Computed example of a mutant assay.
Amino acid sequence: MPSVPQELSTVSMLGRAYSLLGFQIVDGVVGAGFPQKPSHSAVFAQIKPEGSRLTELARGANMTPQAMGELVDELVEMEYVVRRPDPTDGRAKLIVLTEKGNACVAAGIATITTLEESITAILGERGHRELRRLLKRLLDQG
Rank of each mutant, 00 (worst) to 15 (best):
M1K: 08
S3F: 12
V4P: 01
V4G: 03
Q6G: 11
Q6A: 15
L8M: 10
L8H: 13
V11N: 04
S12Q: 15
M13A: 03
L14Y: 08
L14F: 13
Y18A: 09
Y18S: 14
S19P: 03
L20I: 14
G22M: 00
G22W: 01
F23D: 14
Q24Y: 04
I25G: 02
V26W: 05
G28L: 14
V29Q: 11
V30S: 03
G31P: 02
G33Q: 07
F34E: 08
F34Y: 15
Q36P: 03
K37M: 14
P38A: 12
S41G: 08
A42P: 00
A45H: 03
Q46I: 09
Q46C: 04
Q46V: 12
I47Q: 05
I47D: 06
I47R: 15
K48T: 13
P49I: 06
E50W: 12
G51D: 11
T55M: 15
T55P: 01
L57F: 10
N62V: 06
T64K: 08
T64C: 09
Q66A: 15
A67M: 03
A67Y: 12
A67P: 01
E70T: 13
D73P: 01
D73S: 15
L75S: 00
E77F: 04
V82A: 03
R83G: 02
D86Q: 05
G90S: 07
R91F: 06
A92K: 12
A92W: 00
K93V: 05
K93T: 06
L94F: 03
V96P: 06
T98L: 00
E99D: 11
G101K: 08
N102W: 10
N102D: 07
A103C: 00
A103L: 05
C104F: 04
A106P: 10
A106T: 15
A106H: 13
A106C: 08
G108F: 01
I109C: 09
A110M: 09
A110I: 04
T111C: 04
I112L: 04
T114H: 07
T114L: 07
E116Q: 02
S118R: 02
I119M: 09
I119C: 15
T120Q: 14
A121F: 03
A121E: 13
A121I: 01
L123D: 05
R132S: 12
R132I: 14
L135C: 11
K136A: 15
R137W: 12
R137G: 10
L138E: 13
L139E: 07
L139Y: 08
D140T: 08
Q141V: 06
Q141N: 08
G142M: 09
G142I: 07
G142F: 06
